[in-house]
């Protein structure tokens, strides 16, 4: 049944519309503004007044940052840690979840307790740092991958999913003499695409966005990921100047552009850092939300 709408109804609708428009503008403006600045000529940007559209369009800021060897290298590190971290993370987290989904697993109770406690208690950063150090993982690429390769919250989500797979599927494979290893790799993985996609995105985004492990464990420039480079750029204007200068051959140009370049370089570096996330955002939105729903249903 449809009730006639009163005047206060229209007022509420208008108010909501206004609030939502504000949310849209406030959320999007910083992104669009930075994008515009990164695509605008740096000498022109210093005059101010750039909003969401570049005034003097140029790719120069991007050319500059990619001419500096640090950025492509950091990009490769970020890509490597994301790809390797996601694949190994899925493998170790998924296999544990698969095992714990079996009621006939010997030691299941103890294993489950081992997994639950670290979800609520941790040793904190100091003992963790000392452990990593004693294992010789400082300034080692694998420090990005190994310590967090088993994600316990993700494991719970995967286990919940695996538990919903009908027993019959596995039973028939067992009758045919398949081992659990074969069942996991050849039967379970192919039919678990939705949960694998969700967890892969969880791990991938966390890997791409991670900066703290690099700040704690890595001092070597050649191993620093994009997030760290961006961090250096925003905390040290000088670093940005270095990046800017390395691409410029004309000294006069360089001196003139010194102060103006910093903001453009920062914005270009930022855009490059956030781009992969934006590109996969449509998938992210779909699968992440599915993920929290499963998580919240579980409680």
């Amino acid at each position: 049944m449809r009730i006639k709408r009163s005047r206060s109804d229209y007022f509420i609708d208008g108010l909501i519309l206004l609030v939502m428009l504000m949310v849209l503008v406030i959320t999007l403006y910083p992104f669009l503004n930075s994008l515009a600045i990164s695509l605008n000529d740096s000498k022109d940007s210093v005059k101010g007044g750039i909003t969401i559209w570049p005034r003097v369009f140029t790719w120069n800021n991007y050319v500059l940052i990619f001419n500096n060897e640090r950025i492509p290298r950091a990009y490769l590190i970020s890509i490597a840690r994301t790809v390797i971290g996601t694949i190994l993370g899925l493998l170790f987290t998924g296999s544990l979840a698969f095992g714990l989904a079996h009621t006939n697993l010997v030691g299941r109770k103890i294993y489950t307790i081992i997994c639950l406690i670290p979800m609520y208690f941790g040793g904190g950063i100091i003992p963790t740092f000392l452990l990593i150090k004693s294992m010789g993982l400082l300034n080692n690429f694998w420090v990005y991958i190994i310590p967090g390769v088993v994600g316990l919250w993700n494991m719970i989500l995967m286990r919940t999913y695996f538990q919903t797979i009908p027993d019959g599927l596995e039973e028939s494979a067992v009758i045919d003499g398949a081992s659990y290893l074969r069942i996991f790799f050849q039967i379970i993985i192919p039919i678990s695409a939705p949960i694998i996609a969700t967890i892969a995105l969880y791990i991938g985004v966390a890997q791409w966005n991670s900066w703290f492990d690099a700040a704690m464990y890595i001092t070597k420039d050649s191993l620093k990921p994009m997030q760290t480079i961006l961090m250096n750029v925003i905390s040290e204007a000088r670093y940005a100047e270095q990046l800017a200068q390395s691409g410029i051959t004309d000294v006069g140009n360089m001196l003139k552009g010194q102060n103006t370049n910093v903001r453009s370089i920062t914005m270009a570096t930022m855009v490059v850092t956030v781009l992969p996330i934006l590109m996969i955002y449509p998938f992210l939105q779909r699968y992440f939300i599915k993920g929290i729903m499963v998580g919240s249903l579980k409680g």
Binding site: F92, I117, P127
Partner: peptide, 15 residues
């Protein structure tokens, strides 16, 4: 996976 958890979660806890 359990060994990795014991090493990277439990040793710091003990620490």
């Amino acid at each position: 996976s359990l060994i990795l958890i014991l090493v990277f979660s439990y040793i710091p806890m003990y620490g």
